[in-house]
């Protein structure tokens, strides 16, 4: 079971987030992707081949080349409803733009919106976030 799916084009943040998460959860429970396309591809494969590995939390960057965070959220809607319900998306961004925040809230699969960098407090909050359904 994958607890965290990290999606960020910035290698630094992937390293950074993985390192901080390693303090509270085992390394194999964290998957990292430097592009949303790669993450989607993996999720499609996982759902098909190893549904047990379906991630619980996704930490999603907004500003990425080709496919940005919102594009990813659109694509996520194409997954079966049941699988969408089992994933909690947390936006992780360096953006201070309010428009991004407002837009993120319109996606039902988004549970929270955080500003980088990931902190221990955020991890705790993520851990304590219940499913909506």
């Amino acid at each position: 079971m994958i607890k965290y799916l990290l999606i960020d084009d910035d290698e630094f943040f992937l390293i950074l987030n993985k390192d901080i998460l390693s303090l509270s959860c085992p390394e194999q429970a964290v998957m990292e992707f430097n592009s949303a396309t790669a993450a989607l591809k993996w999720m499609e494969e996982t759902l098909e081949k190893e549904p047990a590995n379906w991630p619980e939390n996704i930490l999603l960057d907004i500003r990425m080349p080709f496919m940005n965070g919102f594009d990813f959220l659109e694509k996520l809607n194409d997954f079966p409803e049941a699988s969408i319900r089992k994933v909690k998306v947390f936006m992780m961004t360096s953006s201070l733009d309010e428009r991004d925040f407002i837009k993120a809230r319109t996606y039902p699969s988004v549970y929270n919106y955080f500003t980088k960098p990931l902190t221990m407090e955020m991890i705790e909050e993520i851990e304590n976030t219940p499913y909506k359904h």
Partner: peptide
């Protein structure tokens, strides 16, 4: 928007690294 992002990103990374 982009510049603020591009300037903030390394800065925020530094903050995260300092935390680590």
């Amino acid at each position: 928007y982009s510049v603020s992002h591009d300037l903030r990103s390394p800065l925020l990374a530094i903050l995260g690294l300092v935390q680590l």
